[in-house]
Design a binder for these strands. Structure first.
Lengths: 188, 188
DNA sequence: GAAGAATGACTGACTGGACAGACATTTATG
DNA sequence: CATAAATGTCTGTCCAGTCAGTCATTCTTC
């Protein structure tokens, strides 16, 4: 019946938001995002009702992408340390390949206008990870800790590791390995 | 001479800023801070040249307080695990006793208008910690990692632990212990 | 399949509100 | 009385979200 919304435009806005948020922080102006996307100010609001809406959708998309990337090719039959190592390497590799996405996601995770519903959905996307973690910590010092606590620990170590890899890419491999050893020491 | 500046007023502003930042985030309005302090809008600017200036001074003050609290009564002669445990318990205790301060400090640490100079000074305040950490990690998986990396790991685990303690105070002790075991596993 | 009616996406100037910081005036201190 | 702190209004800036008008696309009718 009428001009259809374009997926290209929608994803141009999402991609622009990723870049601008990574650059300007959560205070990023919608006008700046629209400009970066090559789209008019008003047009942004035909794709996203509010700025918070845009942020929530972007959060979910990035979270899903990060989760899927980190679970790629897990050797289901290998021992648990090998699986964990593969997961770790996937996660760190994704972060290195997409620093803007990883930075924007880190900021959005802290943002106050990500709704509880979005956070819940985000955690759901990470469900596969939880299973691997569960086995990893079975005999370690965290064997009796609540699972969300264990997940938070892993994220904390992961975030800190990524920060170092991005700040010092020359030794990224080394930092990634050190981070994994730290994680494994904590779990096993 | 002339009317002197009052330390009471200055610290009222600092305390108010702590509360308001904890409540409203880094977007906290200077007007809100002044009001909370029972001080006029303009007066705030006779004590702090700019908002960023206030934030930097508050960051340093909170950082110094946290550092000093966490080093209190370290048993210099005890074995390293005992020292580390005392440090950990001090840190977590301070955070539980002053949730606003700890939250504001966490936010300020991420803030973009904390200058590199302030961050450097902040790290300096934590110097005592570094020595304890150095001995703790001497034989563990992180024995060859750069010290800043080890510090970042510890902070990451500490932040995650505090989040859980504050969110679930009934089991604060348990969370604190679990966090310590995680840290110790990582180091030793 | 051509004409044109209907739809709704697109644009960018605009609005209302919030906020950092300045300033003119008042008040306290020595 | 000289000096400087205190006050709170005021101003310029910035920004999320709106809106009136435009135009691309699709549907309908002959």
């Amino acid at each position: 019946m009428a001009r259809p919304k374009s997926d290209d435009r929608r994803s141009a806005i999402m991609a622009a938001a990723t870049r601008v948020i990574a650059r300007d922080g959560l205070g990023a102006a919608t006008a700046a995002i629209a400009k970066e996307a090559g789209v008019s100010n008003g047009s942004l609001f035909t794709y996203f009702e509010t700025k918070a809406d845009l942020f929530n959708q972007l959060y979910l998309e990035l979270k899903a992408e990060a989760a899927s990337a980190s679970m790629k090719g897990l050797p289901a039959k290998a021992d648990i340390r090998t699986q964990m190592a593969r997961f770790w390497s996937n996660s760190m590799g994704w972060a290195m390949a997409h620093p803007d996405k990883r930075h924007a996601l880190a900021l959005l995770t802290m943002s106050e206008d990500i709704t509880p519903a979005s956070k819940a959905a985000g955690h759901k996307a990470m469900a596969g990870v939880a299973a691997v973690l569960e086995r990893s910590r079975a005999k370690g010092p965290l064997r009796n800790a609540p699972m969300p606590f264990v997940i938070a620990m892993m994220n904390a170590v992961g975030d800190a590791t990524m920060d170092f890899m991005l700040a010092d890419p020359a030794h990224a491999k080394k930092h990634s390995k050190a981070g994994f050893e730290a994680l494994w020491g904590m779990l096993g």
